[in-house]
Amino acid sequence: MIRLRRALLSSVTTGLLKDYTDDIRRQATEKERKDRAKELWANRRQVRPALLGGLAEMAPGHERCMYCGDSQGTDVDHFEPKSLAPLRTFDWLNHLLACSFCNSNQKRNLFPVAADGRPLLVDPTAEDPLDHLRLVLPLGTYQGLTDRGRACIEVFGLNARAVLVKGRRDAYVTAWNAIELWRIAMDKGQRDKATEIVRVSWNRPLVDVLVAMFHQSGHPAADALFAGEEEVLDHLRDSELRSAFLHFRGLSY
Protein backbone atom coordinates (compact mmCIF):
# COMPACT_ATOMS: atom_id res chain seq x y z
CA MET A 1 0.00 0.00 0.00
CA ILE A 2 1.20 3.49 -0.85
CA ARG A 3 -0.06 7.03 -0.24
CA LEU A 4 -2.54 8.13 -2.91
CA ARG A 5 -4.17 11.46 -3.76
CA ARG A 6 -7.97 11.61 -3.93
CA ALA A 7 -9.18 12.69 -7.37
CA LEU A 8 -11.92 15.27 -7.86
CA LEU A 9 -15.21 14.27 -9.44
CA SER A 10 -17.33 16.43 -11.71
CA SER A 11 -20.12 18.50 -10.20
CA VAL A 12 -22.65 16.35 -12.05
CA THR A 13 -21.35 13.12 -10.47
CA THR A 14 -21.04 14.76 -7.06
CA GLY A 15 -24.67 15.86 -7.31
CA LEU A 16 -25.83 12.36 -8.23
CA LEU A 17 -23.95 10.86 -5.30
CA LYS A 18 -25.61 13.35 -2.97
CA ASP A 19 -29.04 12.49 -4.36
CA TYR A 20 -28.43 8.79 -3.70
CA THR A 21 -27.28 9.52 -0.16
CA ASP A 22 -30.30 11.74 0.54
CA ASP A 23 -32.55 8.92 -0.70
CA ILE A 24 -30.96 6.49 1.77
CA ARG A 25 -31.15 9.03 4.61
CA ARG A 26 -34.90 9.44 4.12
CA GLN A 27 -35.52 5.81 5.08
CA ALA A 28 -37.11 5.40 8.51
CA THR A 29 -35.05 2.60 10.04
CA GLU A 30 -31.48 1.33 9.85
CA LYS A 31 -32.64 -1.85 8.16
CA GLU A 32 -34.53 0.16 5.56
CA ARG A 33 -31.45 2.33 4.98
CA LYS A 34 -29.30 -0.76 4.46
CA ASP A 35 -31.83 -2.32 2.10
CA ARG A 36 -32.19 0.90 0.11
CA ALA A 37 -28.41 1.36 -0.07
CA LYS A 38 -28.02 -2.16 -1.40
CA GLU A 39 -30.76 -1.60 -3.98
CA LEU A 40 -29.36 1.72 -5.19
CA TRP A 41 -25.79 0.40 -5.37
CA ALA A 42 -26.95 -2.54 -7.49
CA ASN A 43 -28.39 0.00 -9.95
CA ARG A 44 -25.59 2.57 -9.96
CA ARG A 45 -25.21 2.75 -13.76
CA GLN A 46 -25.39 6.55 -13.78
CA VAL A 47 -22.30 6.97 -11.62
CA ARG A 48 -20.31 3.75 -12.13
CA PRO A 49 -18.16 4.99 -15.08
CA ALA A 50 -17.26 8.21 -13.28
CA LEU A 51 -16.38 6.38 -10.05
CA LEU A 52 -14.18 3.84 -11.83
CA GLY A 53 -12.56 6.57 -13.90
CA GLY A 54 -11.73 8.66 -10.85
CA LEU A 55 -10.35 5.67 -8.97
CA ALA A 56 -8.28 4.55 -11.97
CA GLU A 57 -6.75 8.04 -12.08
CA MET A 58 -5.74 7.73 -8.42
CA ALA A 59 -4.51 4.14 -8.51
CA PRO A 60 -0.83 3.16 -8.61
CA GLY A 61 0.69 1.84 -11.82
CA HIS A 62 -1.81 0.87 -14.50
CA GLU A 63 -4.97 0.80 -12.37
CA ARG A 64 -3.48 -1.49 -9.74
CA CYS A 65 -5.42 -2.54 -6.64
CA MET A 66 -5.01 0.02 -3.86
CA TYR A 67 -4.59 -2.74 -1.28
CA CYS A 68 -2.24 -5.38 -2.73
CA GLY A 69 -0.75 -3.23 -5.52
CA ASP A 70 -0.41 -6.29 -7.74
CA SER A 71 -3.60 -7.15 -9.61
CA GLN A 72 -5.71 -4.86 -11.75
CA GLY A 73 -8.32 -2.94 -9.80
CA THR A 74 -11.75 -3.86 -11.12
CA ASP A 75 -14.07 -3.24 -8.15
CA VAL A 76 -15.26 -0.12 -6.35
CA ASP A 77 -14.61 -1.12 -2.75
CA HIS A 78 -16.28 0.58 0.20
CA PHE A 79 -13.55 1.26 2.75
CA GLU A 80 -16.23 1.23 5.44
CA PRO A 81 -18.60 -1.52 4.23
CA LYS A 82 -22.05 -0.39 3.14
CA SER A 83 -23.54 -3.13 5.32
CA LEU A 84 -22.13 -1.28 8.34
CA ALA A 85 -22.44 2.31 7.13
CA PRO A 86 -25.24 2.58 4.53
CA LEU A 87 -25.04 6.38 4.50
CA ARG A 88 -21.46 6.09 3.18
CA THR A 89 -22.47 3.87 0.25
CA PHE A 90 -22.22 6.80 -2.19
CA ASP A 91 -19.60 8.76 -0.26
CA TRP A 92 -16.69 9.38 -2.69
CA LEU A 93 -14.27 9.55 0.24
CA ASN A 94 -15.29 5.99 1.13
CA HIS A 95 -14.48 4.50 -2.30
CA LEU A 96 -11.24 2.71 -3.19
CA LEU A 97 -10.17 0.63 -6.20
CA ALA A 98 -9.64 -3.04 -5.39
CA CYS A 99 -8.96 -6.22 -7.29
CA SER A 100 -11.69 -8.84 -7.05
CA PHE A 101 -9.51 -11.05 -4.84
CA CYS A 102 -8.82 -8.37 -2.23
CA ASN A 103 -12.43 -7.18 -2.34
CA SER A 104 -14.33 -10.48 -2.39
CA ASN A 105 -11.89 -13.01 -0.89
CA GLN A 106 -9.89 -10.97 1.62
CA LYS A 107 -11.70 -7.86 2.88
CA ARG A 108 -15.35 -8.78 2.22
CA ASN A 109 -17.27 -7.04 5.05
CA LEU A 110 -14.34 -7.09 7.47
CA PHE A 111 -13.78 -3.73 9.15
CA PRO A 112 -11.92 -4.15 12.45
CA VAL A 113 -12.09 -1.25 14.88
CA ALA A 114 -10.12 -0.32 17.99
CA ALA A 115 -11.62 -0.21 21.47
CA ASP A 116 -12.46 3.47 20.96
CA GLY A 117 -14.27 2.73 17.70
CA ARG A 118 -11.61 4.06 15.34
CA PRO A 119 -10.98 2.05 12.16
CA LEU A 120 -7.95 -0.24 12.28
CA LEU A 121 -7.61 -0.47 8.51
CA VAL A 122 -5.59 2.22 6.73
CA ASP A 123 -7.17 4.32 3.98
CA PRO A 124 -4.24 5.13 1.65
CA THR A 125 -6.03 8.22 0.32
CA ALA A 126 -6.33 9.72 3.80
CA GLU A 127 -2.93 8.92 5.34
CA ASP A 128 0.44 7.38 4.57
CA PRO A 129 0.45 3.59 5.01
CA LEU A 130 4.19 3.80 5.71
CA ASP A 131 3.34 5.20 9.14
CA HIS A 132 1.89 1.77 9.92
CA LEU A 133 3.73 -0.70 7.67
CA ARG A 134 7.36 -1.45 6.89
CA LEU A 135 8.36 -3.63 3.98
CA VAL A 136 11.35 -5.91 4.64
CA LEU A 137 12.76 -5.47 1.15
CA PRO A 138 14.93 -8.59 0.65
CA LEU A 139 12.20 -10.84 2.09
CA GLY A 140 9.20 -9.22 0.43
CA THR A 141 7.19 -9.31 3.66
CA TYR A 142 5.56 -6.57 5.71
CA GLN A 143 6.02 -5.75 9.38
CA GLY A 144 3.21 -4.04 11.26
CA LEU A 145 4.49 -0.93 13.03
CA THR A 146 1.12 -0.30 14.68
CA ASP A 147 -2.08 -2.17 15.45
CA ARG A 148 -3.50 -0.69 12.27
CA GLY A 149 -0.59 -1.94 10.21
CA ARG A 150 -0.98 -5.41 11.67
CA ALA A 151 -4.70 -5.36 10.91
CA CYS A 152 -3.97 -4.51 7.26
CA ILE A 153 -1.50 -7.38 6.98
CA GLU A 154 -4.07 -9.79 8.35
CA VAL A 155 -7.19 -8.59 6.52
CA PHE A 156 -5.54 -8.29 3.10
CA GLY A 157 -3.26 -11.30 3.52
CA LEU A 158 -0.24 -9.19 2.62
CA ASN A 159 2.18 -11.84 3.92
CA ALA A 160 -0.04 -14.92 3.68
CA ARG A 161 -0.35 -14.76 -0.12
CA ALA A 162 2.84 -16.36 -1.45
CA VAL A 163 2.38 -14.80 -4.89
CA LEU A 164 2.56 -11.30 -3.35
CA VAL A 165 5.67 -12.07 -1.31
CA LYS A 166 7.50 -13.57 -4.29
CA GLY A 167 6.31 -10.72 -6.49
CA ARG A 168 7.73 -8.14 -4.09
CA ARG A 169 11.10 -9.91 -3.99
CA ASP A 170 11.22 -9.87 -7.78
CA ALA A 171 10.04 -6.25 -7.85
CA TYR A 172 12.95 -5.33 -5.58
CA VAL A 173 15.42 -6.78 -8.08
CA THR A 174 13.63 -5.08 -10.98
CA ALA A 175 13.61 -1.72 -9.22
CA TRP A 176 17.29 -2.02 -8.38
CA ASN A 177 18.07 -2.80 -12.04
CA ALA A 178 16.02 0.21 -13.17
CA ILE A 179 17.94 2.50 -10.83
CA GLU A 180 21.25 1.23 -12.22
CA LEU A 181 20.03 1.72 -15.79
CA TRP A 182 18.90 5.27 -14.92
CA ARG A 183 22.38 6.09 -13.63
CA ILE A 184 24.02 4.66 -16.76
CA ALA A 185 21.67 6.61 -19.04
CA MET A 186 22.34 9.86 -17.18
CA ASP A 187 26.10 9.32 -17.26
CA LYS A 188 25.83 8.93 -21.04
CA GLY A 189 23.73 12.07 -21.36
CA GLN A 190 20.66 10.07 -22.45
CA ARG A 191 18.12 12.14 -20.52
CA ASP A 192 15.09 11.05 -22.54
CA LYS A 193 15.95 7.42 -21.88
CA ALA A 194 16.43 8.17 -18.17
CA THR A 195 13.03 9.87 -18.03
CA GLU A 196 11.40 6.86 -19.67
CA ILE A 197 13.04 4.54 -17.13
CA VAL A 198 11.50 6.59 -14.32
CA ARG A 199 8.05 6.53 -15.94
CA VAL A 200 8.07 2.77 -16.51
CA SER A 201 9.39 2.11 -12.99
CA TRP A 202 6.41 3.85 -11.41
CA ASN A 203 3.92 2.10 -13.68
CA ARG A 204 4.88 -1.45 -12.75
CA PRO A 205 2.83 -3.61 -10.39
CA LEU A 206 3.90 -3.72 -6.73
CA VAL A 207 5.20 -0.17 -6.84
CA ASP A 208 5.05 -0.22 -3.02
CA VAL A 209 8.51 -1.80 -3.25
CA LEU A 210 9.99 1.24 -4.99
CA VAL A 211 8.28 3.59 -2.53
CA ALA A 212 9.68 1.57 0.38
CA MET A 213 13.20 1.70 -1.09
CA PHE A 214 13.26 5.50 -1.22
CA HIS A 215 11.45 5.90 2.10
CA GLN A 216 13.82 3.58 3.97
CA SER A 217 16.94 5.04 2.36
CA GLY A 218 16.12 8.33 4.07
CA HIS A 219 15.42 6.70 7.44
CA PRO A 220 17.85 7.36 10.34
CA ALA A 221 18.39 3.58 10.51
CA ALA A 222 19.01 3.25 6.76
CA ASP A 223 22.48 1.74 7.21
CA ALA A 224 20.98 -1.09 9.25
CA LEU A 225 17.98 -1.53 6.96
CA PHE A 226 20.28 -1.92 3.94
CA ALA A 227 23.01 -3.92 5.68
CA GLY A 228 24.85 -5.94 3.04
CA GLU A 229 23.29 -3.84 0.26
CA GLU A 230 25.39 -0.72 0.59
CA GLU A 231 25.59 -0.21 -3.19
CA VAL A 232 21.78 -0.03 -3.39
CA LEU A 233 21.72 2.50 -0.56
CA ASP A 234 24.39 4.67 -2.17
CA HIS A 235 22.33 4.93 -5.34
CA LEU A 236 19.13 5.66 -3.44
CA ARG A 237 20.87 8.47 -1.57
CA ASP A 238 22.04 10.13 -4.80
CA SER A 239 20.31 13.53 -4.74
CA GLU A 240 19.94 13.72 -8.52
CA LEU A 241 18.39 10.26 -8.69
CA ARG A 242 16.07 10.94 -5.75
CA SER A 243 14.88 14.16 -7.34
CA ALA A 244 14.16 12.45 -10.68
CA PHE A 245 12.23 9.53 -9.22
CA LEU A 246 10.42 11.23 -6.35
CA HIS A 247 9.43 14.34 -8.28
CA PHE A 248 7.63 12.12 -10.81
CA ARG A 249 5.29 10.86 -8.07
CA GLY A 250 5.20 14.09 -6.08
CA LEU A 251 6.92 12.42 -3.10
CA SER A 252 9.31 14.00 -0.62
CA TYR A 253 10.85 11.08 1.27
Rank of each mutant, 00 (worst) to 15 (best):
D123M: 09
L158Q: 08
N159F: 07
E39N: 12
A175Y: 09
T141L: 13
I179G: 04
F90P: 01
L120R: 14
L133P: 02
T14D: 13
P205M: 06
L97P: 02
R5N: 12
H62V: 13
D147T: 12
A37P: 07
G73V: 05
R191S: 15
G140R: 05
R118E: 14
C152N: 14
F79M: 01
R148A: 04
R45Y: 07
L164T: 08
Q216F: 11
R118Y: 00
L40G: 00
R169K: 14
R191K: 15
D192S: 10
V47Q: 06
S100R: 11
V165E: 06
A227T: 08
P205G: 04
R191C: 02
R242L: 06
R36D: 05
A175E: 06
D22T: 12
L87R: 11
V173M: 05
L40K: 09
Q143A: 06
A185H: 04
Y142H: 14
Q27Y: 08
H95V: 02
K38D: 15
R168N: 01
G61Q: 07
L137C: 09
N109R: 12
W41C: 07
E63Y: 01
R26D: 14
E229I: 05
M58A: 15
E63W: 02
T125A: 13
A224T: 10
V113W: 00
R45N: 10
E229Y: 12
Y253S: 06
D23A: 14
D23S: 13
D91S: 13
A244W: 04
N177Y: 04
V47P: 01
D208F: 04
L236F: 09
S217N: 08
L87P: 00
W92E: 02
G218K: 03
G157Q: 08
V200T: 14
L130I: 02
